[in-house]
Write a protein that binds this DNA or RNA. Structure first.
Length: 311
DNA sequence: AATCGGAGCAACCGCTCGAGT
DNA sequence: GACTCGAGCGGTTGCTCCGAT
């Protein structure tokens, strides 16, 4: 013989928002038992509540428990959720076990109302964490993002330059050129994506010789990596490879800021971008970096940058 | 001041899985 | 082994709040 049916379908069982009295009765009952709930099914009767056991469990686990953290999600928590979601999918309860004081329901709501939209704005599929195809990407024109990207690239280039040009310089230049062509291109979005894809291919084929700083272009720039969740890992790698106070770090950090800001905007098709700032004007603040010689003195870099910029 | 629409969130619904009979 | 139920989980709904018009 099986068990008796659940109370959830009983007529007269109260539904809807909980009152203060009900909350109090539930908390007092559970505290009286030393936090040991026992059977949720039998709880409502024992606690004097006209509620379904299921409803009581939900109210307790999602709202009344003392260890629940309140308030906004921190950046760190948001990052963790994205990373975990990339590997676990919609396993909200499993994700919740990695965030102290957060419930699965809260994380699920936060994902659906904040993170999901944010990823879509950035052209990232929130389900697969892959870059969305061009025709599904949000193409709202946003001049601010366009204005930031060239400068971000130059700062990133400065970081690369300061990190050393001994090996893979040619490869770096090619990648950079692809990226700058992507930005400067007056073609359709398809052209932009094609250029970025070419840059990606170069990066992927040259991981052994291109310095970590070069990954930077890939990680922050337009969120063009195949997996969004991996980006912060590489960014941290970059941060670990440099120290605060060094010129490389300063350049990389500036590029980071700009890329992050740009990535938070909707990226417009290249044809809609406003005229770019003068190359010289962008280059000027980088000349202040101690130890930077390549961008200024090395015509190799300067030529590439200028040529690409004029495309 | 009133109305409308969107965002955020608490709560419900329905399904799955494991355990009891 | 078959059946039934409880607990837990993810998806969805509907209420409330708030800003825009």
């Amino acid at each position: 013989m099986g068990r008796s049916p659940c109370c959830c379908h009983d007529a007269g069982v109260k539904k809807g928002p909980w009152t203060e009295e009900e909350d109090k009765a539930l908390v007092e009952h559970i505290q009286k038992r030393g936090g040991n709930v026992g059977s949720w099914r039998g709880l409502p009767k024992a606690a004097g509540l006209n509620r379904c056991g299921k409803s009581c469990r939900l109210r307790w686990t999602n709202y009344l428990r003392s260890d629940i953290k309140r308030g906004n999600f921190s950046e760190e928590e948001e990052r963790l959720i994205i990373t975990l979601h990339a590997s676990l999918g919609n396993k909200w309860s499993t994700i919740a076990t990695h965030l102290e004081g957060r419930t699965d329901n809260e994380i699920k709501n936060y994902w659906n109302t904040h993170i999901r939209k944010k990823l879509l704005r950035m052209g990232v599929d929130p389900v697969t964490h892959q870059q969305l195809p061009p025709d599904q990407t949000n193409h709202d024109v946003n001049g601010a993002a366009a204005a930031l990207l060239p400068e971000a690239l130059l700062w990133a280039a400065a970081a690369v330059s300061l990190g050393g040009l001994d090996t893979g310089a040619l490869m770096q230049a090619q990648v950079l050129q692809q990226l700058l062509q992507a930005i400067g291109s007056n073609n359709s979005t398809t052209g932009l994506i094609a250029n970025l894809a070419a840059a990606n291919t170069l990066l992927n084929s040259s991981s052994s010789i291109v310095p970590n700083q070069m990954n930077y272009l890939q990680t922050g720039y337009l969120c063009n990596t195949s997996n969004f969740a991996e980006q912060h890992v590489v960014q941290q790698q970059l941060t670990n490879d440099t120290s605060p106070g060094t010129s490389t770090f300063a350049a990389a950090e500036r590029a980071d800021q700009l890329c992050n800001t740009a990535a938070s905007y909707n990226v417009a098709p290249a044809g809609d971008w406003p005229p770019a700032q003068e190359f010289g004007g962008l280059l000027e603040p980088m000349m202040e970096l101690p130890g930077l010689c390549s961008l200024e003195g090395d015509s190799f870099w300067k030529d590439i940058l200028e040529d690409s910029y004029c495309l």
